[in-house]
């Protein structure tokens, strides 16, 4: 159920909380001499679904870590709903959830306990209420049968869905996905893309996806950014990417497989 007020409709409590925006102001991050993010300025609007693309190693995941407060900028600022992302208080004021690339599920806990950890630790509800929330999230992602399983017993696609369900239980105002479709078959990738889009549509949660999956970006994004060598080389609507004018963008999104002149040989010379 999309909200017309720019508010996140909570899937569990039906209470509306404001969706939040994210602003990066001249974000630069270096590890030693290596500049990973170079003066990135970008804003993600409340309730928007923004996809950040780029080749492996271009700094996409590092950028997400800055938003969630796991990394501090070398220079520049990251603001989440106007609050500095490096401050621990921001995580108390804004409910942010992140779906990690490998899921980052707690291996010693069952799927149910993975989902129940956040509400238990934050005493969001009593045990019966927590059970309702967890079962609802599992139901949304068709994972009811996996509740008693451990993460090691799940397939790659199921792990991703459990990670999304765990994020959903947090009732987030900002949802971030790090490579949600990597290592998945095309059908499962499409399923995950559909889940991301429908969660955003239903609950109007601000969604930031980091991916190099072209289909995901073209089909679910409202805006797309392309990061290359730490610089933002494209920012615009997904339709602009169907026939990109920029050579770098075209080479990244629609690479030609040239068996006569393979790329790795060009790289060697």
């Amino acid at each position: 159920m999309a909200s017309s007020t720019g508010h996140t409709r909570n899937p569990f409590t039906e209470v509306e909380t404001p969706a939040v925006g994210v602003k990066l102001e001249g974000l630069t991050k270096s590890f030693g001499d290596h500049v990973v993010l170079d003066n990135i300025t970008l804003s993600v609007e409340p309730g928007e679904i923004f996809v950040l693309m780029g080749p492996s190693g271009s700094g996409k995941s590092v950028l997400l870590k800055h938003i969630v407060g796991l990394e501090a900028p070398t220079s520049g600022r990251v603001l989440v709903d106007g609050h500095d992302a490096t401050s621990g208080e921001t995580r108390e004021k804004v409910r942010m959830a992140m779906v990690f690339q490998a899921g980052a599920l707690f291996n010693s806990l069952t799927v149910y306990d993975n989902l129940a950890l956040y509400p238990r630790e934050h005493r969001v509800a009593d045990e019966a209420g927590i059970k309702d929330k967890v079962m609802r999230a599992l139901q949304i992602l068709s994972l009811e049968d996996a509740a008693k399983k451990f993460p090691s017993e799940l397939s790659g696609g199921m792990k991703k869905r459990v990670a999304i369900a765990r994020a959903l239980v947090m009732e987030p105002q900002l949802m971030m996905y790090d490579e949600p479709t990597s290592e998945l078959d095309p059908v499962m990738s499409a399923t995950i893309s559909e889940i991301i889009a429908s969660l955003k549509d239903e609950y109007h949660v601000t969604t930031l996806v980091v991916s190099h999956d072209r289909e995901l970006a073209l089909n679910i994004a409202e805006r797309v950014g392309i990061l290359m060598d730490g610089k933002l080389i494209f920012l615009g609507k997904p339709d602009e990417l169907r026939q990109p004018k920029d050579e770098q963008v075209a080479a990244f999104l629609y690479p030609k497989i040239d068996l006569k002149h393979p790329r790795y040989k060009k790289l060697e010379t």
Binding site: G69, L70, R91, M98, F100, A104, L105, Y118
Partner: peptide, 12 residues
Amino acid sequence: YQEIDALVTMNI
């Protein structure tokens, strides 16, 4: 395996 990062993002 980023479980600690997941805890931090969950504000735990």
